[in-house]
Nucleic acid binder design. Sequence first.
DNA 1: TATTATTGTATCATTTTGTTACAATAATAA
DNA 2: TTATTATTGTAACAAAATGATACAATAATA
Lengths: 243, 243
Amino acid sequence: MDNEFIKQEMNVTGEGFLPGLAIDTVIFGFHDDELKVLLLSYKHTDLYALPGGFIHVDEDVNEAARRVLFSRTGLINIFLEQFYVFGDKSRHDATPLKTIMKARGFTPPEDHWLLKRFVSVGYYALVDFTKAIPTPDSISDSCDWFGLDNLPTLMQDHRQIIGKALQTLQANLDHKLIGFNLLSENFTMGDLQRLYETVLNKKLIRAAFQRKMLALGILERLAKKWTGGAHKAPYLYRFVARD
Amino acid sequence: MDNEFIKQEMNVTGEGFLPGLAIDTVIFGFHDDELKVLLLSYKHTDLYALPGGFIHVDEDVNEAARRVLFSRTGLINIFLEQFYVFGDKSRHDATPLKTIMKARGFTPPEDHWLLKRFVSVGYYALVDFTKAIPTPDSISDSCDWFGLDNLPTLMQDHRQIIGKALQTLQANLDHKLIGFNLLSENFTMGDLQRLYETVLNKKLIRAAFQRKMLALGILERLAKKWTGGAHKAPYLYRFVARD
DNA sequence: TATTATTGTATCATTTTGTTACAATAATAA
DNA sequence: TTATTATTGTAACAAAATGATACAATAATA
């Protein structure tokens, strides 16, 4: 029996947390021309789950989401936004947690706070894949990136949560200019276009894309990048906020 | 002392509701070329509040929002969407509710469930002003429409909630084509343009507006409408979903 | 019957977007 | 050293969308 675990993560009263309310975060990264999300593998089950957590009684909900994001990636000052509240009564499923608890030698009472219905606030984050340091939490074996069309079996409604997060990302990519958050600080126009094409899942016209991005006046052109490829070296760009 | 009130609305345990979670609904209507919201005036205080409520333990959060909307307006099948979760710890203020309770002869204990911190899921609804039947709830004196630039003093962060709802409406008006929900079934092009101008708070070019709306292919042209004005009678239109 | 206000739409100018083309490289092969 | 190749940056033109103006078609009123 893991006393530390039970004390910290599965205390009997749920004291110190807002009851019945949770956070689930879809953390997007971009690598190998693929959009990926960070997933935890739950101990003693074959299920995966989104990084999530609970809200301390003296903590803003948005703060809690930043804390979760930091705990799983080590990152601060990251694009992070609410996108939906998952509040259907049918989404509740205590089985995986019960399994984990029992495997740890703890048989929870039926009315244990963690086994009750939870409403979850969905957040999505856009991070630089190369900067994030995936870190499992105490009830997980691992924390890893998964390509969006290569997702493992997920807990509860976490697959739907990812789906809705992707929809939101697609809808906001352009007019909120949030795509840059998925790239490293310096990037080529090709990098940016491949990102857009991956997220929107459609081909874009190169000349028009470049013209449009440059016309936005939010890109600073830096030195050229010698790629080692048999062709002209592309410029590097950096995102700069307007005014 | 109002026993019914205390039993139904301010029961000591909060039994039957999800704890710490509430719903606030910004119900928009359009009348006299003005965008209006439905507000309740709280008994025994000079404060106004958004229509809101709590979520039954066996009820989806979205269901609860529809129930609130129906209770205050008598309307079903209405455009209603989540737009933000208001979860800052600082938004909590138990004073108005305490005042109401005391005025009713009920002195609540400090740990009464209604006086604790609440996280609120914000919804906005778009309704036909002429169809809604404003109906106060049991802790309110009245339920009335208020013009957006003529709002009374509101409880807690309800003013910010309205502000954020308006931003969401403005951002979604065009690409989600939700404006029609604010008009009655049949309307003239002028009605529609005035609605757009009011929501977006800017003048639109009449010819271009008409051309664009007609090009969308979502308007059915009906008989002309004799307005009694000294000019050509405008057509009436009806919104029809595509495909 | 003329006047007035508004509607519906045509017309042309301007801006934005789609498409094609081509010069400018940076590596590799001949 | 000199082609060859792949990709980049941008020009040039076409097509589509939007802005701006104009005007004929009413429906009431004078």
